[in-house]
Design a protein around this nucleic acid. Structure first.
Lengths: 125, 125
DNA sequence: GTAACTATGCGACAAGTGTCGCATGTGCGT
DNA sequence: ACGCACATGCGACACTTGTCGCATAGTTAC
């Protein structure tokens, strides 16, 4: 079974930090997203906790402290957002040109290729 | 002062119905969005009520029944969504090619042109 | 005028999210 | 042994959104 619910915007910020570098401790993640979210450390931690409950990430211990790993795939997650957006906001049904994301700072060529493939597919479970 | 908060996905569905044809009564709107949202009439009405409170739409009376008008601009609203999405999900900062929306069933040429202009602008209040 | 429909106004409840704070535990420096 | 700085575990509160239901008032068909 796949996750049904899209991560929220804030959760996405955190996921992005982890996709860039993982695992990271709560403190490290907090420092990484502090500027975007402007949250207190408590808020970051609570969100992390909830994301864990939702299996958006997983936890392990290193030297006695908990570190977080992303538990959802980057390209798939982004693809979910993109499909969602194009359908529900733009109401474009046909192909989504990948050229659209070429400027994105998030994706390297490999990932762009994967994304293209993923966007082509119908909805799988 | 402009609206600060983006309409939610469901609110957008309702707004789209109204952009297509306005004004409409609660009942008419409900019929129009029923398929998308699968809500009971009560839910539609409540949402309408809340959208009114938020000034996403306005109300007037015709023959004793209340009808709703959209109170936010279609192109501006869509542009908000697009900017938001490209920045927060895709992290594309530069220009957004309008070609992206050419396939959209939502916009005619005029609107596409306006959209292009709007996307070019920096954030105004 | 009476019953059957609607339209409206409201109240409610639950889940998800943003946003913290407090209390407890534990390793480290002196 | 003591106190400090963190890490963790939890509880809480407010707001938004989804989702209805109920009660009252007006309108219309017998």
């Amino acid at each position: 079974m796949k996750n049904r619910t899209k991560p929220s915007a804030s959760e996405l910020v955190i996921l992005k930090a982890l996709w860039k570098l993982a695992p990271q401790s709560a403190r490290e993640i907090h420092n990484a997203v502090e500027e975007k979210l402007e949250w207190s450390y408590s808020s970051t931690r609570k969100t992390l906790e909830r994301m864990n409950e939702k299996h958006l990430l997983s936890v392990s211990e290193v030297h006695g402290i908990r570190v977080f790993h992303p538990a959802v795939n980057k390209v798939k997650t982004l693809a979910r957002y993109i499909k969602d957006f194009t359908q529900s906001v733009l109401e474009v049904d046909g192909q989504i040109p990948v050229s659209m994301f070429a400027d994105s700072k998030l994706l390297n060529e490999d990932e762009l290729a994967q994304l293209e493939k993923t966007l082509q597919q119908k909805d799988e479970s």
